[in-house]
């Protein structure tokens, strides 16, 4: 059975004005898998989600969701999936309870069943007390939780989450993480999550694909990705930004790649332990003071910088 799976073959999308958002994306997500799609702003994450959830159609390529073609069988696809888009889809004049009931009715439940389902979900997302207040008065975290509940009304096999925690404070972010993890582990719901936060993908996902400029640049488990980069990272804290800039220039020759953020310079090197003395010598020769220097295996963050040439969260 193909319920709960996602198969994407060479998906391309060109918007009006020749903007090529997707340049041939292929991926496959198994039933019950937690998959994260990681990439900077404008990389093509949301476009992919919009195609997979039937909101827009691909220019070419094919996508099957639970075995149904998104282009020719959108109705079947909509019954299989729950979707929480980047912007919450909530009518502020209605109450949480009303929105859940309306959602349930559109998914074919009787009005009695819809009421029952709403009560259940309100309980689950801890919104029972505020169920009869208009959502316009909800906090950001409450809206996100309601939006998530709205996407779960019909117990979908697959849940699409487009940057579900963007703009949330840490407490709410962790609450959402817990909820998603439970869905995945207890109900076996397949999760397709996009995020700009590496920590999020690292924490939650079993498998990650990094997308940049409309193409998948690397895929694998978080561990594999870290290993595949095959390099160590030497991180140096300088006294100030000017010193760091100077240091980065001096060390450029020793690094495979380097990045600088204010007074911090990161250097990717092979076999870091043996190269470390070279670093110290070079800086010493110029009498450049460093506050700290440390050698670490790469984090997912580093993988991201390596493959996209960008710092997370920057366009």
């Amino acid at each position: 059975m193909s319920a709960g799976t996602i198969e994407v073959y060479d998906l391309q999308k060109t918007f009006k004005g020749d903007v090529q958002a997707l340049k041939g994306v292929s991926l496959s997500v198994g039933k019950g898998e937690f998959f994260a799609f990681l990439g900077p702003n404008g990389a093509g994450k949301s476009t992919t989600i919009q195609i997979l959830t039937t909101l827009i159609s691909p220019t070419s390529g094919r996508a099957l969701v639970s075995g149904y073609d998104v282009l020719t069988q959108p109705e079947q696809v909509r019954l299989e999936i729950g979707v929480a888009l980047q912007e919450t889809g909530i009518d502020p004049a209605l109450t949480g309870r009303e929105l859940l009931e309306i959602q349930a009715r559109h998914f074919g439940m009787s009005s009695v069943a819809a009421k029952k389902r709403a009560v259940e979900l309100l309980e689950k997302i801890n919104l029972t007390e505020d169920a009869n207040r208009r959502c316009g008065n909800y906090s950001g975290g409450m809206r996100r939780r309601l939006d998530l509940a709205l996407s779960l009304v019909h117990r979908p096999n697959i849940l699409f989450l487009d940057e579900p925690t963007t703009g949330l404070d840490p407490v709410n972010r962790i609450a959402i993480w817990e909820e998603i993890r439970n869905l995945n582990q207890q109900l076996g719901t397949t999760i397709f999550l996009t995020t700009q936060y590496l920590e999020e993908a690292d924490q939650l996902a079993e498998r990650i694909s990094i997308i940049d400029k409309g193409q998948i640049v690397i895929s694998g488990t978080p561990k594999e990705l870290k290993r595949r980069i095959g390099m160590d990272v030497i991180e140096m804290h300088f006294a100030d930004e000017a010193a760091a800039t100077r240091g980065a220039q001096l060390l450029a020759g020793l690094c495979k790649q380097h990045t600088q953020q204010r007074e911090i310079v990161k250097c990717f090197v092979e076999d870091g332990t043996r190269r470390l003395p070279d670093f110290v010598r070079t800086l010493d020769a110029e009498s450049l003071q460093i506050h700290s220097l440390n050698l670490a295996p790469p984090t997912l963050d580093d993988v991201f910088i390596q493959v996209t040439g960008k710092k997370e969260g920057t366009a």
């Binding site: 909509r78 019954l79 889809g89």
Partner: peptide, 11 residues
């Protein structure tokens, strides 16, 4: 307010 998309995602 994004509710239009939410409705389009239902059957």
């Amino acid at each position: 307010n994004g509710y239009f998309s939410r409705l389009l995602l239902t059957p």
